[in-house]
Design a binder for these strands. Structure first.
Lengths: 136, 136
DNA sequence: CAGTATCCTCATTGATACTG
DNA sequence: CAGTATCAATGAGGATACTG
């Protein structure tokens, strides 16, 4: 597990370099695992959506953050943006093959949490109770 | 976190409520998918670590953020903290069964990104090139 | 060693207003 | 409808100092 200070870019891209500050994966990971990134990916796993549809579906997201999130995901090659030159404007967002692939992973994570929420919340309750007992 | 809204807790826990602002999953998701949460979980998938070991392994993390991240993950029931009453202090962090379960999902996501990084970066390069062409 | 406490900064985010 | 622009506020995060 020893590494030298002078690692090449190719070397950085190899598996296990995730822990390095310079690893490009860190940026991608941030886009994908961001608060709105996760929700947008999961939403788009359900099919193509228009901008306003996404805005309504993803509770609490602002126009600005939705636009920014979509731009990141599009630039990373996960989201496909199709603009129809009509009045009023009509834009559709969908997942690319790459996006569906990673969407599967993100969805698995989100689903796991939703499914195990009862367990987690009961653990939290126990932990909080112990804290109260210690303070008493 | 007090309830007493119009939506019952049982209702909130149902699948698909992830898009709701009030869904408790949102908080868990934030802890797990946070910048340092992801890296700590992946690191602990490799086995038990001490605080300073984690600090060295996870590049760029500050003491404060590492401590905070570990506290969140411990409270959510993903991380187990064992403190040995010796001088100097000795504390070991490991994953609970619940933590290993979700760690698997997070690791899958991180691994996918590392494996597909070349594809993603080439897509990015193409996208950036198109932007340049449009501006010209 | 393994933290906590404090202060401080700057990036992320939200609200609002405006545009093609 | 689908954004962009601008500004303000929040809070994530870092640096430092201190403690059990």
């Amino acid at each position: 597990m020893s590494e030298s200070k002078t690692v090449s870019l190719a070397e950085q891209m190899r598996r296990g370099e995730l822990f390095s500050t310079q690893c490009p994966s860190r940026e991608i990971l941030k886009h994908v695992t961001s608060q709105w990134g996760v929700l947008v990916l999961v939403a788009l796993m359900g099919g193509t959506h228009r901008f306003s549809e996404l805005r309504r579906k993803v509770g609490g997201v602002s126009e600005k953050m939705l636009a920014q999130t979509l731009q990141y995901l599009e630039r990373d090659g996960f989201v496909c943006r199709v603009s129809f030159p009509v009045v009023p404007p009509h834009v559709e967002y969908s997942l690319t093959p790459l996006g569906r692939d990673i969407g599967l992973k993100v969805e698995a994570l989100a689903d796991w949490i939703e499914s195990n929420l009862p367990s987690i919340m009961s653990v939290q309750a126990t932990a909080d109770q112990e804290v109260v007992e210690q303070q008493a």
